[in-house]
Design a protein around this nucleic acid. Structure first.
Length: 531
RNA sequence: GGGCGGGUGGCGAAGAGGCUAACGCUGUGGUCUGCAAAAUCACCAUUCACCGGUUCAAAUCCGGUCCCGCCCUCCA
């Protein structure tokens, strides 16, 4: 398994500290707002990395922090007249809603800065004792000159940096590149007692302290967006390695940015899209698919058309699941064995799984891996087109192929059922049925009208005809499934009677409500348009 | 100014010395179908920003040119 390591700009064979175990840390968000799409990329990317490592037999310990003490949070809280820590807490909760929707597995530990102040103070003290830090009027700075390897991650020398550094240099610092470990408290800010007086931690120290606390002095993998390479990760290395004298991280992984019109999506440019808004318009698995259909290190340009394309592509993959489920017949005994043509087919699918693994083994190339998933989808569809529903061999072959297909889909996390409001759907479908009956009545097609009323009655839905149409009352809400089964059967009857106008009208009305009907030789199937 | 990364069909996107340059979207034609959709079959880059070089062999390596993005300031 090979991993691209930012430390030396090469793909390297993954060799973990302990066999079959991975210690992994990913920089989490500063929680002063809802996360935007750019924040979502590393979440999804490293979630896939984590799932894939687990799939390959690694036991992964995954830590992701929350920066809940920071200038941004303090400013935001001040604007809103809120308490900084409470505000941060609130957005942590919102963060989890988004992450859960995207199918991101929770980290084993989600440490927060505010809960690690003593450890951070102790670390700064140690740095000071070792000569890597100095205090200036309640502020503590890291002495970059003292760390010989400074710049090894970002590939720049201290001299390079000084040439460019001219923005707001604090004259008190020994060196322009020195960065804050501890900031003296200003009025109205959250602060903690320390040997340097009241204050709070600088941004970079938290990650060094919390990652090593939960994962040990050396980590296998540390991930984050590539905008963190400098200065954040460079500083993390300087701090952690000065503290422990050991290598901090063996593999540094960085994801590329999301751009809008080829400009980086960022909070400061203001061209960002709140994930919550995107999720209101597109299912989470589509967003997830969009994010991993491109290699994680490549830039990814965002616009609606891209999501639309992802929706269609993923829809194709899901159709295969639907077709296979339709084909599956519980009444046919499955010997579990396949031979002949069926065996060849299953072997072909297994071969694509091998290709999938090869792609993912090569620096988590999910874009390439997805190609194998499409191949499998395609092969299953083709096989299905010729398969016999009553054939035990075909049943077994499809079952095995689909198992592989789902297995790979789950590694990527792209086959997620959308949670939906069942009641809302039911009332929409009921409405359609009611209108249908109304039309039948006005056309004096009482046989059909009564048929509908009887069906509803059996479900516990009563229909009371009044002057202005009919009123629906029901004690318990019927299932979408049973309504659809009925509606489809009814429509089939209409089709048999060549009443195409009415049959098409049903299809159109359902489509308006986000339900797609597709006729096939065996009958009709239905699905949600956004599933 | 310094440090990175990139330019592949109509679009998105893999490929990093040698199989017909994956895969998806779009488009075209056929099958299926009452129609639609879905599925299926077939077609759609002699060519990988440009110029030169290395090699039996280059989209892939080397040199140069032209564009584009990112970092050097909070940012995933």
């Amino acid at each position: 398994m090979r991993v691209y390591n930012t430390l030396n700009s090469k793909k390297e064979e993954l060799s973990t500290l302990s066999p079959h175990k991975v210690k992994m840390y990913v920089c989490g968000p500063t929680t002063y707002n809802y996360i935007h799409l750019g924040n979502a990329r590393p979440l999804v990317v490293f979630d896939v990395v984590r799932r894939y490592l687990a799939y390959r037999g690694y036991e992964v310990k995954y830590v992701q922090n929350f920066t809940d003490v920071d200038d941004k949070i303090i400013n935001r809280a001040r604007e809103e007249g809120d308490d900084a820590l409470l505000l941060a807490e609130r957005y942590i909760e919102e963060y989890f809603k988004d992450a859960d929707a995207l199918g991101i597995k929770r980290a084993d530990v989600h440490p927060r800065v505010s809960e690690h102040i003593p450890e951070i103070i102790a670390a700064i003290q140690t740095l000071q004792e070792k000569g890597f830090a100095y205090e200036m009027e309640g502020d503590v700075y890291y002495r970059v000159r003292a760390f010989a390897d400074y710049g090894k991650l970002s590939g720049r020398s201290l001299e390079d940096m000084l040439a460019g550094a001219r923005v707001g240099v604090d004259e008190r610092k020994e060196n322009a590149a020195d960065f804050a470990l501890w900031k003296a408290a200003r009025a109205g800010e959250p602060s903690w007692e320390s040997p340097w007086g009241k204050g709070r931690p600088g941004w970079h120290i938290e990650c060094s302290v919390m990652s090593t606390k939960y994962l040990g002095e050396t980590l296998d993998i540390h991930g984050g967006g590539s905008d963190l390479i400098f200065p954040h990760h460079e500083n993390e290395i300087a701090q952690a390695e000065a503290l422990t004298g050991k290598p901090f991280v063996n593999y540094w992984m960085h994801n590329g940015f999301i751009t809008v019109n080829n400009e980086k999506m960022s909070k400061s440019l203001g061209n960002f899209f709140i994930l919550r808004d995107i999720l209101a318009a597109y299912p989470a698995d589509v967003v997830r698919f969009y994010l991993i259909a491109t290699h994680y290190r490549s830039p990814l340009d965002f616009d609606d058309a891209k999501l639309e394309e992802a929706r269609k592509a993923l829809g194709r993959l899901k159709t295969t699941l639907l077709l296979a489920a339709e084909f599956h017949d519980v009444n046919i005994a499955d010997s579990g064995e396949v031979k002949g043509k069926a065996l060849e087919f299953v072997e072909l699918i297994a071969d694509y799984r091998k290709q999938f693994i090869e792609a993912m083994d090569d620096d988590f190339n999910s874009a390439k891996a997805i190609a194998s998933v499409f191949e499998i989808s395609h092969r299953i569809n083709s096989y299905l087109a010729l398969a016999e529903r009553g054939d035990a061999l075909d049943q077994a072959a499809i079952k095995q192929a689909v198992a592989i297909y789902k297995e790979l889909g789950d590694v990527l996390g792209i086959f997620v059922e959308k949670l939906r409001n069942e009641e809302a759907v039911v009332s929409k479908v009921l409405e359609i049925i009611a209108v249908l009956r109304q039309e039948a009545r006005s056309e004096k097609n009482f046989a059909l009208a009564d048929n509908i009323r009887d069906f509803l009655k059996n479900l516990g839905v009563s229909m009371e005809d009044g002057e202005n149409g009919s009123r629906l009352r029901y004690e318990r809400s019927p299932q979408v499934e049973e309504l659809m089964v009925y509606l489809l059967a009814l429509r089939q009857e209409l089709k048999t009677n060549k009443d195409y106008a009415r049959a098409d009208s049903i299809r159109d009305k359902l489509k308006e409500q986000g339900i797609i009907l597709e006729d096939s030789r065996e009958g009709a199937r239905w699905k949600f348009a956004d599933a």
